[in-house]
Each structure stands twice: as structure tokens, then as C-alpha cells.
């Protein structure tokens, strides 16, 4: 099926969503997402950050769709024409969505473990306004310990439903869900039931914000001071392909590997995530690839020396003073 997104035509198989098609073209035209997760079925459609304008429904029925649609849940049609970054209305609407998402968010990034790898932080940076127009008290919840390893801080939650989908699809018994409605809705384990399941730790990886955090890692380090390393082990419960976040020889935390879009590639079990905190537990493959734009790669680009030389060359060409030489 041929579909045109922002003027770029691409051929995709039947059943592809607009978002997947846009991601095939590349990150420049791919809409941002918060609640969609490629590995979780029926995820997406809630946060509305990925809305796009369909200016031509299909070749057979060229009328435009009246409302913007959630690209993560809309399948492409033959000859569909989609506008994302080239449509001012879409960008304005997305700015509105970001404002709504940030409205009741505490913005406690300086003390939040997710800072540096937070989808909401990135989204706010790329699509949001610098200030808020919301002048009322923000929503607050008590912190809830759910089991030995996970802490829930609902105040930061943006209701993406991803953790509910993890519990539904990876574990055999979902014990947590959404209580109440409207802006009082909260993720709850219902009377603070403990989530005890081998795969329950994955709720931390799918959480786009700092609402679900790893208690074995809380306040240990800022993520950009740790070095991500890909490693594996023979695990009977999961694929065993993980990312270690190291400081020196110490393994501070273990997470699933995440792809270009910040979504977990393989879900991992709790034993790998919480129990194996020694380098001897793992076969280390090498440094992880982290996008250069990420704050995590601030101190350790993969080809640092090469980069330094390049920068120096550019500076020299521009006639800058060489800061390494004293006058």
C-alpha cells in the first residue's frame, strides 16, 4: 500500500498503522508518542500526542478525515495522504496536548530518577511551551510501595495505561488497574496489593515518566553518570538480553534494551532485573548505542576522540583560538 506522509511516499504492507509507516520513513516525520508501545497490543490512542491530519482518506475515497486521528491506532489505506510536521494545526494541537500532560505533572525532574531518560521531558523539550498557563494547585498522591522492588508515585503519572497492558499481556494475573475517573483516575494496585510476578518489573521500563521506579536504583545515581552496556545471560524465564547501567565496575541497575523510539525490545524477568547485580553474572557484549542527542551520552560518545578532532578542525577553520594552547 502506498501512503504519503509529509510529502514522502512509502510502500507499506496492509495493516500497518500511520505511526509505523512514519517510523519507517524516519525520525524526522515520525510523530512523538507517550502511550504507544510497539511490543504491547492495544496500547496507544490515549495520550493524543501522535495525532496527525489525514488530508486524503484513501485513493478510492479522497475526502479528508474531519478530525485529527491518533496515528498509532489508525491503519493506512491505499493512497492515504497524511500531514504531520508540515501542518500547523497538528503542531498547535500537539502543543495543547503537551500542555495538558504537563498541567498536573509535578515537574520534580531534579529529584526524579527518570530524568535524562524521560519521554515526557523529551516531549516537553521538543514540543512544549516554556511556561505554563495553569495557575491552580496540582494533583498530588501519596507514594505507594508495590512489592519489594517497585515504587509507584502517581503524582508523576500521565495515565498512558502501558503498565496495565504489561500486567495484562505479560503476567498471568493482573492485580492492578485504573481506579476512579476523570482527573481523579489513578493507577492502583487496589488496596495496595503487592505485584508479585516474574515479569512485573517491566512496568518500570514501559513507564514513560518517573511514576514507576526501581527501588534498587532509587537515588543511587543520575542516569547520565552511569554507562550503559549491553549484556546477556542464560535465563530460563526471559531472553536474558539486558542493558547494564554501570559506574566503574559496579552494576547500578539492569533494564531491558530500548530501541530508537525508547521502547523495550525484549521484556526481562525480575531475577535478571533485580537480583543479578554483579558483573560476573553477565556476559558483556559492549557499550550500548545511545542517541547523541540524549543527555546520557553527554560524557561518553562512542567515538569521542574522532569527534573532538572534528570540532577542533571546525574551530580552527573559523579562526577560533585553540583553548588547549596557552598564549
Amino acid at each position: 500500500m502506498k501512503v504519503t506522509i509529509d510529502g514522502i511516499e512509502i510502500d507499506v504492507p496492509k495493516g500497518t498503522t500511520i505511526l509505523q509507516a512514519a517510523r519507517m520513513i524516519g525520525p524526522d516525520v515520525a510523530p512523538p508518542t507517550m502511550c504507544y508501545h510497539s511490543k504491547l497490543k492495544t496500547s496507544g490512542g490515549y495520550c493524543r500526542t501522535c495525532i496527525v491530519k489525514v488530508t486524503q482518506g484513501s485513493a478510492a475515497n479522497p475526502t479528508p478525515m474531519p478530525k485529527p486521528v491518533a496515528s498509532c491506532r489508525t491503519e493506512v489505506m491505499e493512497g492515504m495522504v497524511v500531514e504531520n510536521t508540515i501542518n500547523a494545526d497538528v503542531l498547535e494541537a500537539r502543543k495543547g496536548v503537551v500542555e495538558f500532560l504537563l498541567m498536573n505533572h509535578p515537574l520534580d525532574c531534579p529529584v526524579c530518577d527518570q530524568a535524562g531518560e524521560c519521554d515526557l521531558q523529551n516531549l516537553g523539550y521538543s514540543h512544549g511551551a516554556a511556561t505554563t498557563r495553569y495557575e491552580f494547585p496540582r494533583r498530588e498522591f501519596e507514594r505507594i510501595d508495590i512489592g519489594k522492588y517497585v515504587q509507584l508515585h502517581m503524582t508523576r503519572c500521565i495515565m498512558c495505561f502501558r503498565c496495565v497492558k504489561v500486567a495484562e499481556q505479560l503476567t498471568d494475573n493482573r492485580v492492578h488497574g485504573v481506579m476512579h475517573r476523570g482527573d481523579a483516575a489513578e493507577i492502583s494496585t487496589y488496596i495496595e496489593n503487592v505485584i508479585e510476578n516474574e515479569m512485573s518489573g517491566n512496568v518500570i521500563d514501559v513507564c514513560p515518566v518517573g511514576a514507576l521506579t526501581d527501588k534498587t536504583f532509587r537515588f543511587k545515581s543520575r542516569v547520565w553518570f552511569t554507562k550503559p552496556v549491553d549484556a546477556n545471560c542464560d535465563c530460563k524465564k526471559c531472553a536474558g538480553k539486558v542493558r547494564l547501567w554501570m559506574k566503574g565496575d559496579e552494576v547500578l541497575r539492569v533494564t531491558a534494551r530500548k530501541d530508537q523510539w525508547g521502547e523495550a525490545v525484549d521484556f526481562i524477568c525480575n531475577e535478571c532485573r533485580f537480583e543479578k547485580k554483579k558483573t560476573s553474572d553477565w556476559k558483556i557484549e559492549g557499550p550500548s548505542h545511545i542517541a547523541r542527542t540524549s543527555v546520557i551520552s553527554q560524557n561518553h560518545y562512542e567515538h569521542l576522540n574522532e569527534l573532538k578532532l572534528q570540532v577542533m578542525k571546525q574551530q580552527k577553520a573559523l579562526g577560533f583560538m585553540d583553548i588547549n594552547k596557552r598564549p
Binding site: C47, R48, L101, Y134, V178, R181, G182
Partner: peptide
Amino acid sequence: YHHESCGQCSPCREGTGWMEK
């Protein structure tokens, strides 16, 4: 409408309460 919003999608969940305030 603020009271009756289901809380699934962000514009309605947050926007209805904001308008009421």
C-alpha cells in the same frame, strides 16, 4: 463534564477540570 470525564485521554481528562477551575 469534569465530573463525568472517564480519564482515558489527556485533553478531556485535564482540560475539563481546567475549564471548570
